[in-house]
Structure formats: structure tokens, C-alpha cells
């Protein structure tokens, strides 16, 4: 589903990614863990074709995201860290608008069901999105991504802004998507959710994966300790 080979990206003199290798199979959840500036968002932007790698390749379902970003994005669904919506449209309208532009014919009932699955209360479906909290917007973003039934789901700090209950619901939703065969790449700081959701964790430091961990072999404390050690090692 996703194959990144030796991806390098620099912004001026500053390296953002330094020979990143990463691959992701069908139905697998991979978490990219790393501090701010480690290269998580750059990786996501390379996969989406918003940035082009200086060296190496990024392939989504066999399509080079550098040379054919639109083709690559056809197979991707994406939830950004800050989900932005049209404030004058309701949640249902926003969801149907994005789905329509992406070429989907989403019935109103289906949109309502997807929003419910994403955890947005029914009373909010018809309210203008301008009145939504960050968490509510995030849930609409989740519904937008779910509606696409894409082969690769990219999540950039997906639980940021969600209350604990919603974050737990989100974990269930993501696991269900993975069980349906969707490959999921999650860039996050949230160790707790990582352990809950991810099959594999890559610790990203200075643009490289310095450690790959199977999170379920560790408890939360162990995962956090290992993460801090690897970061310290990567920074050394």
C-alpha cells in the first residue's frame, strides 16, 4: 500500500527527512512517533504529494506520489491535525460537499450514519460547523475520510482535540477500518493511543526512523521509556 524508500527532504540547509524507509501493508496500522520537527508532517506531505522528495521515492499503491500526486491521492484518505470546515454549512453538508467533490454520491442518510460512526452527536448534524468545537470538527474530518473507503488512511495527530471518550471511540473506528483492509499511517504524540491502535511504531528522529517497535509487547510505561531513550539516542 505504501512504500517509502530513502526519502530525503531538505528545507534550505535544514534536513527534514534523511533517507526515510517505510512500508505499510494492507490492514496494518503504523504509528510514526516523534517530537515536533522530527519529520512526521513532512512524511505525510510527501505521501500526499504536497511536497516532492529531494531524493528517494514515495509510492502509494504502486503510484509515485512525486510524479503523479493526484493519482496517488486517489487511494488516500486524510485527516489533518486541524480539520477545517465551511462554517456556513452543517456537518452533514460539509461531509456531502467534500464527498461530492471527491466523486462520491453520498446519500444524506449515509452521511448521517458516517457522522454518527465518527462520534458526532445527532443534535450537531444540522448546526453550522462554525459553532463546532475542535473535537467536533475533527469528527467530521474522520467521517470525510471514512466516506472515501480509501486503501490508505493518513492520520496527522488525529486524536488532538478529542475528549477521552471520543478518542476511545476513534480508536475503535480506526481498528475497524484496518480490519476491513485499510492500511493506516498515524503521525502522533499520543503514546496511549499508539499502543491501543498501532501494529508497529516507528520512532522518528531527525528525519529517520531510529527504532521500530511492536507496541503491544510493552506496557504504556515501557513504551514511553523506550521512546524517550530512542529519542535521546537519535539526538545524540
Amino acid at each position: 500500500m505504501l512504500a517509502i524508500r530513502g526519502a530525503t527532504k531538505r528545507f534550505g540547509d535544514r534536513p527534514a527527512l534523511d533517507g526515510l524507509d517505510l512500508s505499510l501493508r494492507r490492514g496494518e496500522v503504523f504509528a510514526l512517533l516523534g517530537p515536533n520537527g522530527a519529520g512526521k508532517t513532512t512524511t505525510v506531505n510527501l505521501i500526499l504529494g504536497f511536497l516532492k522528495a529531494d531524493a528517494g521515492s514515495v509510492r502509494v499503491c504502486g503510484i509515485d506520489a512525486g510524479t503523479d500526486p493526484i493519482g496517488a491521492r486517489r487511494h488516500v484518505a486524510y485527516i489533518p491535525e486541524q480539520v477545517a470546515l465551511y462554517p456556513g454549512l452543517s456537518g452533514v453538508e460539509n461531509l456531502r460537499y467534500f464527498a461530492t467533490l471527491a466523486g462520491l454520491d453520498l446519500a444524506k442518510e449515509t452521511a448521517v450514519a458516517l457522522l454518527a460512526e465518527a462520534g458526532l452527536g445527532r443534535e450537531a448534524h444540522r448546526r453550522p460547523a462554525g459553532s463546532y468545537s475542535k473535537g467536533m470538527r475533527q469528527k467530521v474530518g474522520i467521517a470525510v475520510a471514512l466516506a472515501r473507503q480509501a486503501r490508505l488512511l493518513l492520520l496527522d495527530e488525529p486524536t488532538s482535540g478529542l475528549d477521552p471518550s471520543a478518542a476511545a471511540d476513534f480508536s475503535v473506528t480506526v481498528r475497524a477500518a484496518a480490519d476491513r483492509g485499510t492500511a493506516i499511517l498515524m503521525a502522533t504524540h499520543d503514546l496511549y493511543r499508539v499502543r491501543e491502535m498501532a501494529d508497529r511504531v516507528g520512532v522518528l528522529s531527525r528525519g529517520r526512523i531510529v527504532e521500530e517497535i511492536a507496541p503491544r509487547t510493552l506496557d504504556h510505561v515501557g513504551l514511553e521509556r523506550l521512546y524517550m531513550e530512542r529519542l535521546a539516542g537519535g539526538a545524540a
Binding site: 484518505a77 467534500f98 474530518g141
Partner: peptide, 15 residues
């Protein structure tokens, strides 16, 4: 606003 990121990232072709 950020809606362009959500649209393009979810397979909306720019054309």
C-alpha cells in the same frame, strides 16, 4: 482556512 488541505488530501482532483 484549511479546507483546501482537507479537500486535496481526500482525493479531490485540483482540476
Amino acid at each position: 482556512r484549511g479546507t483546501l488541505r482537507l479537500a486535496l488530501g481526500n482525493g479531490v482532483p485540483p482540476g
